[in-house]
Design a protein around this nucleic acid. Structure first.
Lengths: 198, 198
DNA sequence: GCAGCTATTATAACCAGGTACTAATAGTAT
DNA sequence: ATACTATTAGTACCTGGTTATAATAGCTGC
């Protein structure tokens, strides 16, 4: 009977996957010890499961984190700006992924939604250095994992003398408003800045 | 004359450091090609500069990113809460590190300062699920790389009927106030939540 | 000019943690 | 008995190094 002998193999495959997921730094030798099979079996199993060798796993992790580090400057703006009319309006899209949600509920953490809006409010201001001075925000409904958050910013006034701009941002999922915020942005012309925008 | 022959070595050391910093995935063989010296010289140089071999570098990067992934759940609260009196007040400390600042200016990005305050405002509410409904915030002065931001939250009112709490948060660097915020937190008793707190 | 020094290069043995391939063995199904 | 799968064993080879030992080149001080 095939099932009798095949089950242990599949079980071992699951165990092996779990062990490597739990500790990606485990060697085949250690897996041999824990699974009580020969090192060849471990390697055949990895082959079948398309799990790369330890060094390859470490390399992939290192590359992933290195790419993340390199792309950090891009994150100075949270969300992808898809339309921008300086000193007038702007639109950005931000997809809520696993790293943005409150793990227990799958609800996006507030500061990510805020960050998208703040980024856009700063970006829409046509100035070298623009920093958020104040913000008055309202989370209208929760944003969930997988949802695409579309933020629209409108510049309401620019008072040239004191270098302040008022920007309103509304964020939507589909046609539901999820967030609204009124930002006051300092359009710093170089001197002492007030805050860390995005 | 010693300086004549020693200079090229120090220059090469600088070049080598720079090359590895630019691309940590470079092999000694490739360094040999770029520096026009033997592979032994490259290895002696790495020894002198205490730069680990490629595989060790990748392992360190992988471990660092893996630790970061594992500690993510801890980041559900931004900042270390050092004092907490539920429904009354709380204090948290958050050190501004390189990953939190606007790279051009070394000024902390607004959403990190906001996130610390928001986290604390949510944490101080003695409820299973607490979500930010609205926030009225003001960035008083910029917070810079290396500064320790101390947030103090005070619960101002709890209206049991509609499950709302008002929380004030003030953040300081030393004795300078850098941020203030008025939060309205929903103390969700299980039904439809409004926002993604922290 | 020659010992003494540093810097560099060469050579060889060895290592971890594998891959790739071949072969043997055990169990079981038909 | 035959065929098939699963497992184990063994060997050669690979990358990207370490470690140690020795040879060579270039200059220095005297």
């Amino acid at each position: 009977m095939r099932t009798i002998e095949r089950l242990p193999k599949r079980q071992r495959h699951q165990q092996l996957s779990r062990l490597i997921e739990e500790n990606p730094f485990i060697t085949d030798r250690e897996l041999t010890r824990q699974l009580k099979v020969s090192i060849q079996t471990v390697r055949l199993d990895r082959m079948e499961l398309a799990i790369p060798e330890l060094r390859e796993r470490m390399k992939l992790m290192a590359e992933r984190s290195y790419d993340a580090v390199r792309s950090l400057p891009l994150h100075e703006v949270i969300g992808d700006i898809v339309d921008l009319q300086l000193d007038r309006s702007g639109i950005s899209i931000f997809e809520i992924r696993a790293e943005h949600v409150f793990s227990r509920t799958g609800i996006a953490r507030g500061h990510h939604v805020f960050a998208q809006a703040n980024s856009l409010a700063v970006a829409v201001i046509n100035e070298e250095i623009a920093l958020t001075a104040t913000a008055d925000i309202r989370f209208v409904r929760s944003v969930k994992l997988g949802e695409k958050c579309i933020a629209k910013a409108y510049v309401r006034s620019i008072s040239g003398e004191r270098s302040k701009a008022k920007v309103e941002v509304f964020s939507y999922v589909g046609d539901e408003m999820v967030f609204q915020g009124h930002f006051v942005i300092y359009r710093s012309t170089g001197e002492s800045a007030i805050e860390g925008g995005i």
